[in-house]
Design a protein around this nucleic acid. Structure first.
Length: 291
DNA sequence: ACCGCACCCTGAGCGC
DNA sequence: TGCGCTCAGGGTGCGG
């Protein structure tokens, strides 16, 4: 489940593999709703273009292309971007794993879930976009076009302040966790890091947003930034599908305090972690440390 | 303006 | 043992 840290790690890994290279050819799977821009149009527009940059807005990646075009990528829940020299067994078929064990050069074999392949004029590593559940999004933006979804995004979660959070929580009847995950309030926070930051701030996910004090908003914003920065350092969370572009797994899942730890003891007070549903999402908290 | 819900899709896990 | 069904999972857009 890629959230801000996983998207940022993906971006950092891919920059050296993308920027300055010229796309020669692309391959796609067939029309599907997650291709906001139809594959036929991508095939027409992408080849020949040089990649000029790769930036991130919240959980979105923006690949800058020559001619002023931009490819907008959202990884959804199970989206993966990786290079053809990635060697994570979870990405490979049995044949490819055997080849790797034999010391032969590993070749990722695109499967039915590999929706986009970028091949480059320099014949170097290919870039793959794979998404089993198809919750991701691919969209080509024309010169100067700003997608409404991007325009609506709030400040990046790495830069969120207590005052932004405090203002957003006033006169709202929803739960504090709903506010944290609202991308137009803060861009980049999903279920895992919302639960973790709420734990560190001592606030229950289901607490009414308007009941959170100014002081708690400051702490929450600070913990949120800390948790995201720490996860980026650890290589992200590889809880289900996340694999970095070089094939490495993240390690942040080993540092989790509450997420997906229902019934396990709290790291602080040993009370069993509780699971509840907030905003239609499973939420985890310590009933003793959080109020 | 804000909130809650349906929907997108597939694999894992369970029951028969 | 094997088949088929149910549901989890997160973000977004839409309807109320």
């Amino acid at each position: 489940m890629p959230e801000l840290p996983e998207v940022e790690i993906t971006r950092r890994h891919l920059v050296p593999y993308l920027v300055g290279r010229r796309i020669e050819n692309i391959q796609t799977t067939g029309d599907s709703y997650f291709f906001i821009t139809p594959p036929s149009q991508l095939c027409q527009c992408l080849p020949g273009r040089r990649v000029e940059g790769l930036t991130r807005r919240g959980k979105y990646l923006l690949m800058g292309l020559s001619g002023g075009y931009q490819l907008l990528i959202h990884l959804g829940m199970t989206g993966q971007l990786f290079t053809s020299n990635a060697t994570n067994g979870r990405l490979l078929t049995a044949t490819a794993r055997a080849a790797l064990a034999d010391g032969r050069e590993q070749v990722f074999e695109p499967d039915a879930h590999t929706h986009l392949q970028l091949e480059f004029a320099d014949k170097g590593p290919t870039i793959f976009f794979r998404d089993v559940r198809k919750f991701g999004k691919l969209l080509l933006l024309d010169r100067g076009q700003v997608h409404p979804r991007l325009a609506r995004l709030g400040p990046d979660a790495l830069e969120v302040s207590g005052s932004v959070l405090f203002r957003a929580t006033r006169r709202r009847s929803c739960a504090i966790k709903t506010v944290l995950m609202n991308q137009s309030v803060i861009a980049g926070v999903g279920n895992i890091y919302a639960d973790e930051a709420l734990f560190l701030a001592g606030v229950r996910p289901g607490r009414g947003a308007a009941q959170v004090t100014r002081r708690q908003c400051d702490v929450l914003a600070q913990k949120l930034r800390a948790v995201l920065e720490r996860s980026i350092k650890a290589g992200g969370s590889s809880i289900s599908d996340f694999v970095a572009p070089d094939g490495s797994d993240g390690a942040y899942q080993n540092e989790r305090h509450v997420y997906a730890r229902a019934n396990e003891p709290c790291h602080i007070c040993q009370t069993p972690i509780k699971r509840s549903v907030v905003a239609q999402r499973s939420s985890h908290y310590c009933p003793c440390c959080q109020s």
